[in-house]
Design a protein around this nucleic acid. Structure first.
Lengths: 259, 259
DNA sequence: GTGCCTATGTGTGTCGCCGTACAGAACCAC
DNA sequence: GTGGTTCTGTACGGCGACACACATAGGCAC
């Protein structure tokens, strides 16, 4: 049985050793993640953790008067949400599905045990946490110094890096909520990026027209985060790709769990 | 030999078990930390990690054109800087001493080994990391939504929570660098807080006059971070206070290492 | 096509902070 | 005290984003 061509998989899971992976596999459950689904909310206990495969997930913080800001974005390179592994007892942020897709979920307690026990999984998770922290820090800087144009460019790049295709299903209104700005500000910013030839807009869609141009608009912010994520992915890869080593029976089970 | 009254100690270290603590003790070295000392800088390798006792330490991010923003503050509840334990190979932020004092330092590689090996130390460090992440996230929110007045109030509270006394040695200029705003904006904000009866200013000094008033100005932001840090300290305390259990010889050595 | 709903584009006044400039005030050295 | 340096207070024009208001346009149901 030849392996399907590059099945959508969570890259952190794919980087695990055969032993760890087969150990974890029976604990994982593939679930579909519809856009807008609220995975965690402020103060609610965390029951499941999610390894995204094709969906992307946004970490938001909502202030008392209802205003939001994105504080992180997670695709198939990571896990939503690691805070529980660090001793957080409940969610301190709102975590929602930004783009429809699928994810493996696992009971929080189970993954926590694995995190305590297995050094390899822990290494990967910690490295991912590091990248996520850098992301948040960059957003903090961005929120102080950058214009809405720059932030929109950054947001589009970060999102599309985590999706196949180069088009995002999102309205200006939704993007505004993510960035913590008004819908009108997004419209104006999107038009500027369109004028610069960086993006192309349709009703409810934003597509990249010229990635270089978009990156130029996003500024150093994106570059720094991107580099850190590339380091992260290298770490994943330096764990020899293990799927090729799976015996056929497990292979079958693995891909069943995907379809 | 009676123990000196509440010696200034790093609270995370004080929360360690006797076994872990005595193991770590010979690796620690008390050093003085003058205000303004740059502990780490962008891209430089990290040789030592610091457990502050009486100093406080600021994590800053500096943009390409020289503008700064504080992304975290660390006192004797934590460690500067945890990123290396998470797989960071070099510093991605600038970390400087904000307030003169002392800290225990340890070679990064040694603490990393301890972090890998000892579950208890790791738990404490991870919980601290969690609190630090929340701090950064709150700063991200603050940078978007809050006025300079609010941010100054937050900054003063966070700093003074980590110092004995209720006065901060800092000029408006320095506070402006931390917050990423102009010196003049700090002056105006400080005057507003002064008018509200929250603080009292002298040349190069800012003192709290009315803490409640200052907290009211800082808003929800401070409350959230404070609560998380109180949770962290409870975790520290729930590790039974170990110093009372130290045999006299070790006690002596311990306090020698302080003086 | 027609109608409706939602998304997008545009304008106006306001607010907070910035950049710049300069005046006054506190502190230190002598 | 005197002088110099550093810190603090104040003012003004400009800009980016906001709040609000309203006009237009895309896409779907029928």
């Amino acid at each position: 049985m030849p392996p399907p061509k590059s099945p959508k998989q969570n890259r952190m899971l794919a980087a695990l050793s055969l032993a760890d992976y087969t150990h974890l596999l029976p604990l994982l459950e593939l679930v579909s993640m519809p856009a807008g689904y609220v995975i965690y909310d402020l103060g609610l206990p965390i029951r499941y953790l999610y390894f995204p495969t094709t969906c992307i997930v946004t970490r938001l913080y909502e202030t008392e008067n209802g205003a939001c800001t994105q504080i992180g974005i997670i695709g198939n390179e990571g896990l939503a949400d690691i805070s529980v592994l660090f001793g957080g007892k409940s969610s301190h942020a709102r975590v929602i599905v930004q783009s429809t897709g699928e994810a493996y979920r696992i009971k929080a307690g189970l993954l926590k045990s694995e995190f305590e026990a297995g050094t390899e999984l822990r290494h990967l998770l910690l490295h991912f946490a590091h990248a996520l922290m850098i992301q948040t820090e960059q957003i903090a800087v961005s929120n102080r110094y950058h214009t809405v144009d720059q932030q929109l460019a950054y947001f589009l790049l970060m999102s599309l890096d985590r999706l196949s295709g180069n088009e995002l299903h999102i309205t200006h209104e939704q993007a505004g909520i993510m960035l913590g700005v008004r819908r009108e500000s997004v419209t104006v910013a999107a038009n500027k990026l369109h004028m610069a030839g960086a993006i192309h807009c349709r009703r409810g869609h934003i597509a990249i027209a010229d990635r270089k141009q978009l990156e130029a608009n996003a500024g150093e912010n994106y570059k720094i985060v991107k580099e850190e994520y590339e380091r992260l992915l290298e770490t994943y890869l330096s764990s020899v790709t293990r799927l090729g080593q799976l015996p056929e029976k497990q292979f079958k089970r693995f891909f069943q769990s995907i379809e």
